[in-house]
Every structure is written in C-alpha cells, then in structure tokens.
Design a protein around this nucleic acid. Structure first.
Length: 520
RNA sequence: UCCUGAGUAGCUCAGUGGUAGAGCGGUCGGCUGUUAACCGAUUGGUCGUAGGUUCGAAUCCUACCUCAGGAGCCA
C-alpha cells in the first residue's frame, strides 16, 4: 500500500515530472545537464513515451492500471493507456476492459454514447491500443472497486478481426506459436512479471549478503567444462574455411585465433573471483547444444552460480536452502496476485507445494543412504537402483515426494559419476557434491565443494582425460593462495517454473530456444 | 537421440470406409450497469505433406514434417 501511495504521488503533476513538449520528443531523453535526472526513466513515475502525435500537446501523466486499481480516493483527472481486453456494448454506452500489463487485472472504462469519440468505439476491439481520459470513480457495478468514466478516448492502434488472441483461453502450444503476442495474455503477463521480480530477488539476496556480482564471459575457449555439447562461435566462412596443410580447418585464422564456444557455465570464472573477492555470484545466459526435447531443457537459459570462498559443502547446502526459501517468500510477497492466479488456473497444488518447501527443513542424506532407502523401498522402478550410478528422475522424485515428503539434499556422490573439479572426500571414493531435490521438478540445484588441493586436482584432470595446459589459469588458483571454496548452480527458468507452477520451460522464458526453434 | 501420442475452420475439438460438423471467435442485428455478458442470423476447411490400398479415404497402409508427453543429458 505504501508503495502504491508513493507511485500515485509520483504520477501527479509534480514540477520535476512535468515535461514540456520538446523534451518528450527526443533530446530530453538524454539530458544535457548532468544535474537533471532523466525523468523519463524514473522508476516510480511509470511515465511512458506517448507515441501518439497528438499526445505531445497534452499533459501526458499516465496512470498505470495497477495504480488506478489501488487508488485510495477518486481522481478528477486520469489518463490511461493500454490495450483493450474486451468490450461490452450497451445502447447508450460501452464497457471497455483496459489492461496495460502493470498487473493482472484490467480496469473497467465506461464510454458514454454521447462522447464525440463514440463513433470510433467499434475500433476498440480486443487487442486494440487505446488512450482514455476521464475520472476515476467508485464503480456502480459488482466485481470491481474503481472504474474510469471516460471524457474522451482515442484509438492508438487498431486490432483487426484477425488478431489471434481471443477473450477465451488458448492452449499453451498455440500461444508459443505467437510468442510476440503472448505477453498480452493473462498467464504470460503474470509469468514475465514474476520472472522480473525473481531476477530482482536473486540480486537482492546476494547483494544483501555481501556477494559480488560477476559477469562471466559468454564466449569461452574452454571446450571441456564438462557440461555437454557447446555452440561454436566463429567468423570463419563455413563454405570456404581456411585449411592447414593437413586439410583440417585452421582455427588460428579464426576471430580469436582458436576455437571458441558459447559458455555452458560461468563456474570456473566465478571461482577466479571467489578466490579474490570471497563471495560472488554470476547470473547470466548459458547455452547447451544438446538435442534435448523435454519440458525442462532449453538451448539458451539463465543460470545463477554463487561461489563462496572459505566455505565447505555444509555451508554450501545451508546457503542453497536459504536461497530457495528466500526466493519463494519474496515472490509470494511481491507477486501475490499473480501467484494467486497461477494457483487457480495453472496448478491447484501450487500453494501447497510452496508452503511445503518454505516450512520444511530440507532433509539431508548422503548418496549411499539414498541408495539404501531406494533399495529398501520395495518399489519397482522403471530403472533399477544401482549403487554407484546416477539416480534417475523417478528415484529423485520418490525421495522428495514420497519417502521424505520434504525438499531433499543428496550429497557425497560417487567420484566416478561427477566432474573433475569436485572435491574428493576423505574416503577417496566420493566427492563433496550436492543436489537439491524439490517435489514436482526434481533437481533444482546442483553444486559442490571444489577441489582446492593442487595435486589432487591435477590428478583428477588427468583421470578425466583432459589436458592440464588448458586449465593453467584454473590450476593457478590452487598454486597461489588456494582456499576451500564451494558453490552451486540454479537454473533460473526452473526456479521460475517452480514458483509459478508452469510446467514447460518454453513458457518460462520470453523467447524459447529449443532444437529446431528460434523463430522470434 | 529413443519411446508414446496428436495434426480436421482463426481457436478448441467431434467425425473409424459412402455428400466435412459443433462450440468459441469474426461479421450483421437485437437486448442488458455489463463482468470469459446474453439472444438471433451469418461467415468460415486442398482434413500436416507425399505416395499407396479401394468403386470410393479425414478415416486403412508407408514415408516424411511439425507439435506434445515421457526417457537420456542436465540446470
């Protein structure tokens, strides 16, 4: 409420915020005077560039639908800009529902047939963009507190009869085919508002705890980070590549003088910074060229990778648990209306599952114990439980959903099935790895304590058939002032799926990249 | 990549060998402080593509394409 009050105030015609016409038209967006704030970008003002020519000469103090719906008192003068969701005509007036994406709900606008603009009301079809001036008054009807009685309206952009979005529900598959329009739907508007908030919460969580945000490179030359197929980055003409004497493509003539790829992980770079700034995190896009066709995999996705110096696996597990709970709590607090929508129309179990993760302490169990539990369960799994091998998705689901009925962290995995950088335990047989499992999704976090002992790491690299010289800088971290450190990776879209109940990763990212698909 | 399922009107689907349907949407008209409004009329399809079987194929067969669900890989 407090926030809304501030916003409404900011939207009033305060002197600092009153634009004159020329300022709107361009130059003022890059203020000449350093002392003058770029008001057009002021976060609390919600002012948008009024793109309709005639708006330049009007007091362009736009009120967001969200602010209008949360108003505490009627307003004599209000300007709304948004898209028509639906129109219901009466003989003497029309109801318009206008939504601008600021929140889930639209606001009801009453357009009287006596208005001079009323001749154009038939253009206010579903999907049309519109500008409405009028008064915010208490609604005479049921179902909403406030409504806007229009004194004038203007159709900014028509939406002809072939506008694909109808008032009724569409399948997610259809909406994926119109990814450029689906943010205008209730569901995707909500998903992407939550996505934005979730990203903010991630930064807030780490920044509040003194973590330093590191931008890991997107182009990398290390081709064996141990996380699957990579996309090549090259400026070589594929039709006529330069070739060496042996006929192979000569990568010394490529842009970077060597083969390069899109990153599959920022972890190794994050370790560099953890070994200097102690606590840091990366949050950026990652790319996997795997031919994965599932609801949980995308070729391009965002990942959060904290890396903590002077930290062991236990501290890592503590942080992961606190992190997941923090994000759920934050989204619930700040996106309550959207989460309510998801729990009603997307996943009826959503609230129960979020409560479940919030309230229960995460169960911690070693890999060996987990295998024992699975073997003793008496359950017949599609894939048998074999000690020393990876747990299957069905095994992980059994542990978290049925056995523990709680989020579960499995740790100390067999060394043989984990990457080279994970720290070898005292038993010499297992590594200090951990997977956090949650109901519905399975593995949401994977992490480990890193091997900080130079000789052991060198041995691991050799054992994995990798070349030490390719990791000279990574090994240097162990040569000079090595410290115990640990970290984990959280798939951003998977976390978003978890808090929204959305079942397909293609619906948790604005423009999904999956095998064979990069249309938008 | 493997397994399973599905492609019929703008959308969601029915139609299992004999003249291609419904609801929604769109359009036109009516009615109503309406709320995914309501009522009437109307519009709309090379049945995913290419072959094949048959007197006749949306329907049966083959291949391919696309999409979805599951698996593997993983986040």
């Amino acid at each position: 409420m407090k926030e809304e009050g501030r916003r409404l105030k900011a939207e009033g015609a305060g002197p600092a915020l009153r634009p004159s016409a020329p300022e709107w038209m361009g130059p003022a967006r890059f203020p000449a005077r350093a002392s003058e704030p770029a008001f057009i970008l002021h976060p609390s003002s919600f002012i948008l560039h009024p793109f309709h020519p005639s708006s330049f000469f009007l007091p362009a103090m736009r009120t967001s639908v969200k602010a209008a719906l949360h108003a505490e008192a009627p307003l004599d003068s209000i300007l709304l800009q948004g898209w028509v969701r639906t129109r219901r005509d009466s003989k003497t007036f029309s109801f318009l529902e206008v939504n601008d994406g600021s929140c889930l709900k639209g606001i009801q606008v009453i357009a009287d047939a006596a208005l001079p603009d009323y001749a154009h009301i038939h253009q206010a079809t579903t999907g049309a963009s519109i500008e409405v001036r009028g008064q915010l008054v208490a609604s005479k009807g049921q179902g909403q507190k406030w409504e806007v009685v229009a004194s004038s309206f203007k159709i900014l952009g028509e939406a002809p009869a072939d506008y694909p979005l109808q008032k009724k529900g569409h399948t997610l598959e259809f909406l994926r085919e119109i990814a450029h329009l689906r943010p205008r739907s209730n569901l995707f508007g909500a998903v992407f508002r939550v996505r934005s908030r979730l990203a903010y919460a991630i930064h807030q969580f780490f920044q509040d705890r003194g973590f330093v945000y590191v931008h890991a490179p997107i182009i990398t030359a290390s081709d064996c980070e141990g996380a699957g197929e990579m996309f090549r980055v090259t400026t070589i003409d594929p039709a006529q590549p330069p070739r060496g004497k042996d006929g192979a493509v000569d990568h010394t003539q490529d842009f970077f003088g060597k083969p390069t790829y899109l990153t599959v992980s920022g972890q190794l770079e994050a370790e560099v910074f953890a070994c200097a700034l102690s606590n840091c995190y990366t949050f950026g896009p990652t790319f996997r060229a795997e031919n994965s066709n599932t609801s949980r995999h995308a070729a391009e996705f965002w990942m959060i990778e904290p890396e903590i110096a002077f930290c062991d696996l236990r501290g890592n597990m503590d942080l992961a648990e606190e992190f997941v709970k923090y994000l759920i709590r934050d989204v619930r607090t700040h996106c309550a209306e959207d989460v309510e929508f998801f729990s009603k129309f997307v996943d009826k179990e959503l609230n129960a599952r979020l409560d479940f993760v919030l309230e229960k302490p995460f169960q911690r169990v070693t890999y060996d114990e987990a295998v024992e539990i699975l073997l003793q369960s008496g359950r017949s799994f599609e894939f048998p439980v074999v000690a020393g091998q990876n747990l299957q998705a069905e095994h992980e689901r059994y542990l978290t959903e049925e056995h523990f009925k709680s989020p579960t962290t499995v740790y100390n995995y067999p060394k043989a099935i984990k990457p080279f950088y994970m720290r070898t335990n005292e038993d010499g047989r297992t590594v200090a790895a951990m997977d956090v499992l949650v109901p519905g999704i399975g593995e949401i976090i994977g992490g480990s304590q890193r091997e900080e002992r130079l000789e052991v790491l060198q041995e691991n690299i050799r054992h994995h058939g990798m070349a030490e010289k390719d990791y000279w800088w990574y090994l240097d971290l162990r040569r000079y002032g090595s410290v115990p450190h640990a970290g984990f990776g959280l798939g951003f879209e998977r976390m978003l799926m978890f808090v929204t109940g959305v079942g397909n990763i293609r619906d948790a990212i604005p423009f999904a990249r999956t095998p064979g698909t990069a249309e938008f």
